[in-house]
Write a protein that binds this DNA or RNA. Structure first.
Lengths: 224, 224
DNA sequence: CTAACACAACTCCTCAGACAAGCTGAGGAG
DNA sequence: CTCCTCAGCTTGTCTGAGGAGTTGTGTTAG
């Protein structure tokens, strides 16, 4: 009967519960009514409620303890970056990368260890060897940037980098394929300068070079 | 028998599946073996597998289509920022805020509209009126910072700000309670300077002022 | 009176079986 | 060749049953 109205019952229950949670019906840490209460109340089966609870527990909103009950763990689910990334333009994502990486480069200049510098230099050297396909070039490029972020000794920035690097990979590849072989040597030079700034513990230079590098990338991308 | 070894079967199945996914057993978009295949294969009931799949679907890793099957949607689950925030120190989070807000301030200086500037000024003015409790002060302070980020016209940065502002709120309150009324007037002055820089579209000044403001906060926090 | 124990009631966890609803591809009708 | 039908597969939902853990209550020993 319903033409295109396909949202599973458990999805609907999950949405309904999340709405009631965000409306403030329960406080964080508080116990929610159990599956045996919710199921007849909502007019669905127990397993349906259970699956909705599992879904929200996967999002970090609910947690269950056998014998005790269902408890509210957070009011808002962790942001769905995939959905956000697909609905915003690539420039916004690159601007987030600019923010993260320029700050991380400054911190890396101040905090890097000898070993981490070696890793960065190794990642830089890889690029000369491997320039077979565009994909591998993007990946080695990402590996270099990541090694810098790791040297910042900040786990939050590293996670942020991973979040956006993974999600901007395809867009980067597409761009390189369209714009046909841009200034690879120039990029390589900039990378070398960044390494130099980090090695000499020049935080502001490392930050500025990273920013300029990514800003150029963003502007090159926006023109296509 | 098992002393403190309580991980539900469906959690174990979810972990196992995620491990196999991250090991590259299936590619993104590909169809996974169905619940009727996995259940006997893993030696568990079908509903157990279903709940594990629901959990991963809540994390954005899997997606199910009735009649079709289970499909891989992403290799890595969305980061659990709550868990990350609780296991890292507050300095790391503030450094992430430094990265986000200093960049956002620069973009806000370039892109803000007249209306957004009014909103920022309103948020600034609020602080003079409301200095009742520490909590409300932190909240009005956050509201001011947020109005700046919103003016950057970058949804990704705004989401990032919300993610970390919400999760550093308690730490900020604790700090202010301990350090007993720090330079509120100085903060207010800095805020006013940030607004001035944005109003005159001085991106680098807005960025630098924001950075200095948050760096001072981080260092004040680290000393406690 | 206090503290330790026993237990009942409640909760979530897991399984099995049944049927509904949706998708897919093979095969036949035109 | 195109379109239709349909069998066989998949996930979705419900129900009943029993297992296991938690919590609070009441009892009992000291």
């Amino acid at each position: 009967m319903s033409p295109i109205l396909r949202e599973s019952l458990s999805d609907q229950v999950a949405r309904l519960l999340l709405a009631r949670i965000q409306a403030g019906e329960w406080k964080v840490g508080q116990k929610l009514p159990g599956e045996t209460t919710l199921a007849p109340q909502l007019g669905v089966g127990r397993s349906t409620v259970r699956e909705a609870i599992r879904q929200l527990s996967g999002q970090g909103v609910l947690s269950t303890r056998q014998g005790a009950g269902v408890f509210l763990q957070a009011v808002s689910p962790s942001v769905d970056w995939d959905a956000l990334v697909t609905r915003t333009n690539i420039s916004s994502i690159l601007e987030a990368r600019i923010a993260i990486e320029s700050e991380a480069a400054a911190l890396a200049a101040e905090r890097h260890t000898r070993d981490e510098l070696d890793v960065i230099r190794a990642a830089l050297a890889l690029r000369d060897v491997d320039r077979i396909t565009i994909e591998t070039r993007v990946d080695t490029d990402t590996a270099f940037h990541r090694s810098v972020v790791v040297a910042s000794h900040n786990e939050v920035l590293t996670e942020l980098f991973d979040t956006f690097a993974e999600r901007s990979r395809e867009a980067m590849i597409q761009m390189l394929e369209l714009s046909g072989e841009p200034g690879t040597d120039h990029d390589q030079l900039t990378h070398a300068q960044i390494v130099e700034a980090i090695a000499t513990r020049d935080a502001s230079a490392a930050s500025e070079l990273s920013r300029a590098h990514l800003v150029a990338l963003r502007d090159g991308l926006a023109s296509h």
